[in-house]
Nucleic acid binder design. Structure first.
Length: 938
DNA sequence: GCATTCACG
DNA sequence: GACGTACGTGAATGCT
């Protein structure tokens, strides 16, 4: 669908990406983006690629890069390329941009650690030749001349001329197959290849011409007439042999991508144009736009050719939406879906909350415009039922007087199950976790799956939202019928089971149709944009895991919550009385506005206005300071606020959230909302249950295990600091983590110059705040605020810290530069964390974005590790005979419910799986605790 | 619907 | 030297 089959005679172009970068950089005049990032080499590279694709009609092409500065050659000869200077400062930011360009053009982007681009080129050339395919190597590097032979040619990308036998003869004085031998003798000063002293290319060519090859020459060196040359050759035979190993390209490297995968993919106009625009390449944009957006004028912000095609299908297709009310018709649709191997699937229910939702009907989409809706539990519209006695029992048996004709639910489920569980049919949903939870209650486990919402998040992060309507608008240029339009809103909203069937069919079938269209569009972008593994192994794999966790829920001791609530209420009442007494009047303690006026106007305490609204700030930090100065009223307000929070947000709300059918709380985890890849939890939020105060921990103690079980908490110890040591490559910190040293004490000793032994707890606390500050993109202001010290003092701490760990400052600068260059920073797994404000004119906004850019790779990599750990742990537990199951995730912690008898074995497995999920130069240590409530498990 | 406050990592 | 901040979330409440 996205890639045309190349014609057999189409040559394979192997582009030497790394070689090109240097040449273009030196050959082209300086060119900068509006933000100052140099992009001349990027520009040259993009022009060159477009030329190859357009002028030469290249169909099969790969761009190949050096993976780093070191290769296997350094093991043979440590000084290889040792004299190469660091690349110029203006070139460094262009390396990643050129890889981005490659991916944006939907071209294979290949590199392999330990090998140079030239070795990969040699290996691909060999494989292609053996497959009878013609190869054109695009490079001006003389080192590649050795590969020229029948069917393998070399092309200079800048002069656009072919390098053939003639040029090789002119350069080395021998045929391509003898180039290696000449280079071995002559050496190469730029790469620090020794060669034989005193012998240059001319002499080498002459010698090889005379003796045939290097081995023969060295064996018969004694026959050489010139005495000096004879002796040097005999003395330096080994050097010549080593040199040959260095210059000879390896053609037996294991190919990172299979040979037949190297073709020019379908460019996404959205991706290419936005990349080129970001670089400020307006001429290229103008040149390219007509080709990419040609099929239709840009519509609703989407302009890629694939998008245009899909959008066109979506808009122009005859909407062949069917209403299914009998079994043979459903059987037919299931047959079509099975044959297609892919089906868009969507459920309609009675509630937005998956855990309370009852299945009302479902829709299937099998091709663009081909979708159906199958009603299952629709009832007669309300008007027809008015006057019926059982107003509240709409869905129950007996209340279906006048209900439309529908397939019996159990029959429909029986027909549907084989499709939804078929390993050979991909079920595509939009937020399919919801449908999986709903269908699980009907006894169906959906697999395998794709999720357009999750895909969109892996591709575009938080550049935009991932709701169906937004995605449909952006990518397809269509506005689906809105839910409100179908059910009404506010007081008059009706349940989906009351929606007339023709309306229900139009709405529901369209959703499945849109989902399948989005899939057609988004899936091909995963590979080219470098997030396929992230999507498949991390994000998509997490979906069924989260569905199971949410469905399981966590047990709650409601009596404990009720008791706490009453006591909190008593405390609040007493405090309120005293507060009014101190204020000399009655007012709403919960109103920051009224409180501010009491404190600062009536009582004239020190403090001030703030913010655009002109209201007094009355945050905890301000009340805390007033309380410390001996003022009772703010102290009491602080106590009151704490109790109010605990009662309203926790004790009462959590009791209310208990599902009466399961006696447990079922949260919902969102996996596509955060900028860093973290999950979030809502309805209710179980990721912010109190833990820091004794009163608060009463709430946490109400989270309890099932009878015969315990709760087990497994958390990554200081994961973000470890990632800092890891990513920023700080040897001293890495070492400290490997040795299990107290990291805050270490920081204290480095910054304050005190010994670790017998450290003052206050000193350690300060160091801890510094460490946290580093992770957040430290500022003197923020640290001063946190520690309540003068900003000048905070500044000194920070300077002392950077003095000791200059690599961390480098990391921070790199993060900011990355964000400026791309608009995003990345995690160690390649997740893009977008920082749109990085180029803001408002310095405050920009500073915010800079700190976020520093923090995101740390927080985001941690989030990715935990996501992966959950997937791995789910698998490991399923494969084991153990009865333990995951319940919750709280960023660096996983909470499980474990049979009492299996605690030890489970703890060992959990620790091992979590710690081994990544293999890095820093250990990621997991601490495990168990108990009869969540507090005790810590 | 927005701002403020506060719970968590 | 400007701006006004520690990074990332969700829920309850008051007020316009």
């Amino acid at each position: 669908m996205s890639d045309q089959t190349p014609s057999p005679q189409s040559p394979l172009y192997l582009v030497d990406g790394s070689g090109y970068i240097f040449r273009a950089f030196h050959a082209l005049p300086p060119l900068n983006r509006p933000d100052g990032t140099p992009v001349n080499a990027v520009y040259g590279f993009c022009s060159m690629l477009l030329k190859l694709i357009e002028d030469l009609k290249a169909e099969r092409l790969a761009v190949i890069f050096d993976a780093g500065r070191l290769s296997f050659r350094n093991e043979i000869y440590p000084d290889y390329k040792a004299h190469r200077p660091e690349p110029p400062e203006e070139l460094v930011p262009q390396f990643p941009l050129i890889r981005d360009a490659t991916r944006a053009f939907a071209l294979p982007c290949i590199e392999l650690p330990g090998y140079e681009a030239d070795d990969l080129i040699a290996s691909y050339a060999k494989a292609a030749r053996e497959a009878g395919q013609e190869v054109v190597i695009v490079s001006a590097d003389k080192d590649l001349m050795q590969l020229i032979q029948d069917g393998v040619s070399l092309m200079d990308p800048m002069k656009a001329k072919k390098i053939g036998l003639e040029e090789v003869m002119a350069k080395f004085g021998v045929a391509p197959d003898k180039v290696v031998d000449v280079q071995a003798l002559a050496g190469d000063s730029t790469d620090n290849v020794p060669g034989v002293p005193g012998i240059g290319v001319k002499t080498a060519a002459q010698l090889i011409g005379e003796y045939g090859d290097l081995d023969t020459l060295l064996a018969r060196a004694g026959e050489i007439k010139q005495p000096k040359r004879r002796q040097t050759l005999i003395d330096n035979a080994d050097k010549a042999r080593v040199s040959r190993e260095l210059v000879r390209l390896r053609d037996d490297v294991e190919l990172p991508d299979p040979l037949d995968s190297l073709h020019v993919g379908q460019m996404s106009a959205e991706v290419v144009l936005s990349f080129l625009e970001q670089q400020g390449f307006t001429s290229l944009v103008a040149k390219l736009r007509p080709h990419l957006g040609a099929s239709k004028p840009a519509h609703g912000g989407s302009s890629s050719s694939a998008a245009a095609a899909a959008a066109e299908d979506m808009r122009a297709a005859v909407r062949d939406y069917e209403l299914i009310q009998d079994e043979p018709a459903l059987a037919h649709w299931i047959e079509m879906a099975t044959e297609a191997g892919i089906v868009g699937f969507d459920t309609e229910t009675t509630s937005l909350d998956a855990h309370r939702a009852v299945l009302v009907g479902f829709s299937l989409a099998v091709a663009p415009g081909r979708a159906c809706y199958v009603p299952l539990r629709h009832v007669a519209p309300r008007k027809a039922r008015q006057g019926a006695l059982d107003l509240g029992a709409a869905g129950e048996a007996g209340a279906d007087e006048g209900a439309p004709e529908q397939i019996p639910v159990d029959r429909a489920i029986t027909l549907l199950r084989p499709l939804l569980e078929a390993p050979g049919v991909l079920k595509v949903g939009q937020n399919i976790k919801y449908d999986m939870i709903v269908m699980a209650r009907e006894g169906i486990e959906i697999a395998p799956i794709d999720d357009t919402m999750v895909m969109s998040y892996a591709l575009d992060g938080t550049r935009h939202g991932h709701g169906m309507d937004e995605l449909a608008q952006i990518h397809l240029g269509v506005t689906p019928i809105s839910y409100d339009e179908v059910t009404g809103k506010g007081r008059d909203r009706i349940g989906f089971d009351e929606v007339p069937l023709d309306r229900a069919r139009d709405y529901a079938a369209e959703d499945a149709d849109v989902t399948l269209n989005l899939h057609r569009l988004l899936k091909p972008r995963l590979g080219p944009e470098g997030v396929r593994a992230l999507y498949e192994r991390t994000d998509r794999a997490l979906v069924p895991v989260l569905a199971r966790m949410e469905r399981r829920g966590i047990r709650i001791d409601r009596d404990m919550l009720g008791k706490a609530s009453r006591e909190f209420a008593d405390g609040m009442a007493a405090l309120e009385t005293r507060i009014h007494e101190l204020a000399g009047e009655s007012f709403n303690v919960g109103s920051p506005k009224q409180l501010g006026e009491i404190l600062f106007d009536k009582l004239s305490l020190p403090g001030g206005k703030k913010g655009k609204t002109g209201a007094y700030a009355t945050g905890a930090d301000i009340l805390q300071k007033l309380a410390a100065d001996g003022h009772e009223l703010p102290a009491k307000v602080l106590d009151w606020r704490q109790l109010a929070k605990l009662k309203n947000t926790y004790a009462d709300a959590l009791a209310e959230a208990v599902n009466p059918e399961t006696g447990r709380i079922h949260t919902s985890f969102a996996l596509t909302v955060t900028t860093t890849g973290r999950l979030s939890s809502n309805d209710p939020n179980l990721q912010n249950i109190p833990v820091r105060t004794e009163e608060g921990r009463r709430i946490r103690r109400a989270f309890v295990p099932e009878a015969g079980h315990v709760l087990m908490s497994a958390d990554y110890s200081q994961i973000e600091l470890r990632l800092l040591a890891d990513i920023a490559n700080i040897q001293a910190l890495r070492q400290a983590f490997r040795e299990g040293i107290d990291i805050h004490a270490l920081t204290a000793s480095q910054v304050f110059g005190v010994p670790v032994q017998g450290m003052d707890p206050i000193t350690r606390r300060r160091a801890k705040a510094i460490n946290f500050g580093i992770i957040y993109g430290i500022s003197a202001f923020g640290l001063a605020q946190q520690l309540d010290i003068p900003q000048s003092e905070a500044k000194r701490y920070i300077e002392a810290y950077f003095e000791r760990y200059p690599g961390i400052r480098d990391y921070m600068e790199r993060a900011k530069a990355d964000a400026r260059a791309h608009g995003f920073v990345t995690t160690i797994f390649g997740r893009k964390c977008w920082t749109p404000d990085i180029a803001a004119k408002n310095p405050a906004l920009r500073a915010f974005a800079e700190r976020a850019a520093i923090n995101a790779p740390l927080q985001g990599s941690a989030a990715d590790i935990v996501r992966l750990a959950m997937v791995a742990l789910d698998e490991a537990l399923e494969a084991s005979p153990l009865g333990a199951r995951m319940l919750l995730q709280v960023h660096d912690e996983i909470l499980l419910e474990v049979p009492e008898a299996e605690v030890e074995e489970t703890a060992a497995l959990v620790k091992r799986v979590m710690e081994d999920v990544v293999s890095r130069p820093v250990p990621y240590v997991v601490e495990v605790g168990t108990g009869l409530d969540w507090d005790a498990a810590h």
